[in-house]
Simulated scan of single mutants.
Amino acid sequence: MPHYRTMLRATAWYLLAALAEIGGCYAFYAWLRLGRSPLWTLPGLASLLVFAWALTRVEAAAAGRIFAAYGGIYIFASLAWLWLVEGQRPDRFDLAGVALCLAGSGVILLGPRP
């Protein structure tokens, strides 16, 4: 049962990190590509700080493994952003790709280690 709780906790931290990273990057995108005020960078920077902090909360023996496994979660969250914020529904290729990435993240994070 502790392994189950560890995975739930890691998933929560990964989702928070993804939301914070995408939100922070979008703030800069809005400023530089959509002509919004440079003041958008202030919450963007704060959001990117939350991203970095949240990613350090995931338990693993090596930072590189945490970052690699995060990639699948980031892709999942990016497609959710695409749909919920930008109003573009992911297609079957997006869904197939994210399924592969999430499977890879699981292998990286849950694989047996000596």
Score class of each variant (00 low, 15 high):
S37Y: 04
A30H: 06
S105R: 01
Y70M: 12
R57M: 13
P2C: 02
A46H: 08
R9V: 05
T41Y: 04
A80M: 02
S47I: 09
P43N: 15
A96N: 02
L102E: 04
Q88K: 09
Y29D: 12
P112Y: 14
P90L: 02
L95V: 11
P112E: 11
R5K: 12
A99W: 08
F93C: 01
A54N: 05
R89Y: 00
F51S: 00
G24R: 05
A17C: 10
L110C: 09
P90M: 04
G97N: 08
L16A: 15
L55M: 03
V98D: 07
C25P: 06
L42N: 00
G72T: 12
A54I: 11
G71P: 00
M1F: 05
M1D: 06
R36A: 13
Y14A: 04
A18Q: 06
G104S: 11
F28C: 01
Y14L: 03
M7D: 03
W81C: 02
M7K: 10
A54V: 09
R89H: 07
A30K: 10
D94M: 03
A30T: 03
G44C: 05
T6H: 11
A80Q: 01
A69D: 05
L82P: 02
V50H: 10
T11E: 09
G64W: 15
F76Q: 05
L16P: 13
R57G: 01
L32T: 11
G72F: 14
G23T: 14
F51K: 01
Y29P: 08
G24Q: 02
V50Q: 11
M7T: 03
Y70K: 05
A20P: 10
T6D: 13
L45S: 11
V58I: 08
G97F: 07
L100A: 07
G71V: 00
W81R: 01
I22N: 07
A68I: 11
A52K: 08
W53P: 06
R89Q: 07
A52D: 07
R9S: 08
Q88S: 04
Y14H: 04
G44K: 11
G35Y: 12
A69K: 05
A68D: 07
L55Y: 04
E86R: 13
R36F: 15
G87P: 07
T56C: 14
R9F: 06
A20G: 12
Y74A: 11
F51D: 01
R33F: 15
G64Q: 08
W40N: 12
A20M: 13
A96K: 02
G35N: 06
T56L: 11
D91N: 14
R36P: 04
I22R: 09
A63F: 12
R33T: 13
I66H: 04
E86Y: 07
P2T: 13
I108S: 11
